[in-house]
């Protein structure tokens, strides 16, 4: 059957068997491989995408059912190539992942929560990600990431002068060393040679 799906703001067409899940269609027909197959029976959440802004299992939906909705995959979240959304950056800040396999689903579920609720409680975050199984992290740094992103988003339009404190568990604040650029660092090396591209 022919399907026309609106994915990350673009209408895309494919010829699929009715039995082909939205997950397989995203991955195989549209090469959007950020959604992952973990269990293919709706438990693990690695295949989560947003359908009209709400997180859903793309393994529990057939592509032929998916027309007429606005489908958002993890590929649709970053604002520009090389640029992360506030939430994605927060996951990097707290290291809210390890192997990365559950991460797209985890971020999309959290994204939907933050769209709905600007100041989620820990319990609300736990509930929002409870359908996404992570085997690496034990969830601690994921919850910190969502809390951190909420904090940043709330302060995004704060008036000038309001400080932006780091949140998260004590002791996780980046140390001054993080930004310690090395004065005689290797960037200079690029200018000292006999031509060649920079």
């Amino acid at each position: 059957m022919k399907v026309a799906l609106r994915i990350n703001g673009t209408l895309r067409e494919a010829e699929v068997e009715p039995r082909k899940t939205l997950l397989d269609t995203l991955r195989e027909n549209f090469h959007l491989t950020g959604a992952h197959a973990g269990c293919e029976h709706g438990v693990c959440g690695a295949c989560t995408v947003l359908v009209d802004g709400a997180p859903m299992r793309s393994c529990l939906m057939f592509a032929v059912q998916a027309d007429g909705y606005e489908i958002t995959t993890i590929e649709g979240l970053a604002p520009a190539p090389g640029e992360l959304s506030v939430l994605q950056d927060a996951f990097c800040e707290t290291h809210g992942l390890q192997c990365g396999f559950c991460t797209p689903g985890m971020i999309l579920s959290s994204h939907a929560l933050l769209e709905r609720e600007g100041s989620p409680s820990r319990q609300e975050i736990v509930e929002a990600i409870s359908g996404n199984i992570c085997r690496c992290t034990g969830y601690g740094q994921i919850i910190e990431a969502v809390e951190f992103a909420a904090e940043r988003l709330r302060k995004a339009n704060a008036p000038r002068g309001s400080a932006l404190p780091h949140v998260g568990a004590p002791g996780t604040e980046p140390s001054a060393q993080d930004d310690a650029a090395i004065e005689h660092g290797i960037l200079e090396a690029a200018t000292a040679h006999d031509g060649g591209p920079k």
Binding site: P55, M56, S109, S130
Partner: peptide
């Protein structure tokens, strides 16, 4: 009932 993503659909 289930969890949030399954209740959404």
């Amino acid at each position: 009932v289930g969890h949030p993503p399954t209740r959404n659909r």
